[in-house]
């Protein structure tokens, strides 16, 4: 039985995360806003100008810019979410030991996981909102509700990554593990999950491997919604996969942090 309700314990951390955000948001502006914009301009507009693809080959997108932008949106979601649950979480556990200070209050590990994820959700929501607003003048949204659903999909995708990687952060002992994570997991996902080219180009075996990655589900779902060529059955599969991942990640995160902080 939990004495302090999950919501109450999470709400008590709002002041902390908000104060932290006010003190640190400037540093994140470049990476969360300008970087994706640079990608859109460089790869979508300038490089994409050389690419003439049949919409049938581009998952229904009528130009390479339209094809690549949903991939960039989803990739930014992944990067933002992972960014919030790697080094900051290791800091809270190991460097400045903020979680230990919080644990000396009525808060329990489950509240700490929820608070960190709540902030991650806020970061994903705010960076995605800004990104989508910046994209609006490019005329990239087929429908307004497609844009809204794309936004909601980013929240789900962000949480799927955040919960799983939080569990990883609560288990690893040194930040060297993140070097491996970024080089061997995040960067390959970014390049090969269908953001820049249709995964069918990878050949039959590798394209199936790509279908197993969480980012592909996010990219494909975002693209369907943005270009308004929607396979609803497949969309449902995407949502289901990401939801299961998020639920499993939450369970693993709470368990991992509880065990870690009890040591």
């Amino acid at each position: 039985m939990r004495e302090l309700p999950l919501l109450e314990g999470t709400v008590r951390q709002l002041d902390y995360w908000w104060t932290l955000y006010l003190r640190t948001w400037r540093g994140g502006v470049v990476s969360s806003f300008l970087t994706p914009l640079f990608y859109v301009v460089a790869i979508g507009v300038l490089l994409g100008g050389f690419i003439e693809g049949d919409p049938a080959q581009l998952n229904g997108a009528s130009s390479y810019l339209l094809f690549v932008v949903p991939g960039l949106v989803a990739s930014q979601t992944m990067n933002t979410a992972i960014g919030e649950v790697t080094y900051p979480v290791m800091g809270l556990i190991k460097w400045h030991r903020g979680y230990y200070a919080m644990l000396a209050t009525p808060l329990a590990p489950i509240h700490l996981v929820a608070g960190t994820l709540m902030f991650t959700l806020f970061r994903v929501a705010s960076t995605t909102a800004v990104f989508l607003l910046v994209l609006a003048p490019f005329g990239l949204f087929a429908t307004w509700w497609g844009a809204v659903l794309t936004f909601l999909v980013q929240l789900l995708l962000g949480m799927a990554f955040a919960t799983v990687i939080f569990a990883f952060s609560a288990r690893v002992r040194t930040d060297e593990a993140y070097g491996v994570l970024f080089r061997l997991v995040v960067f390959p996902l970014f390049l090969f999950s269908g953001a820049f080219f249709p995964i069918d180009n990878l050949g039959p075996v590798l394209s199936w491997a790509a279908r197993l990655t969480p980012l592909w589900h996010g990219v494909d779902l975002s693209r369907m919604l943005m270009v308004n060529v929607i396979d609803w059955r497949l969309a449902l599969v995407h949502v289901a996969v990401l939801t299961v991942l998020m639920a499993a990640g939450w369970f693993l995160s709470v368990r991992a942090l509880t065990e870690r902080l009890a040591q």
Binding site: E8, R12, Q13, L14, D15, A101, M102, T105, P106
Partner: peptide, 8 residues
């Protein structure tokens, strides 16, 4: 301040 908030 933040710490006090954790206590509600």
């Amino acid at each position: 301040y933040i710490y006090g908030r954790y206590f509600g």
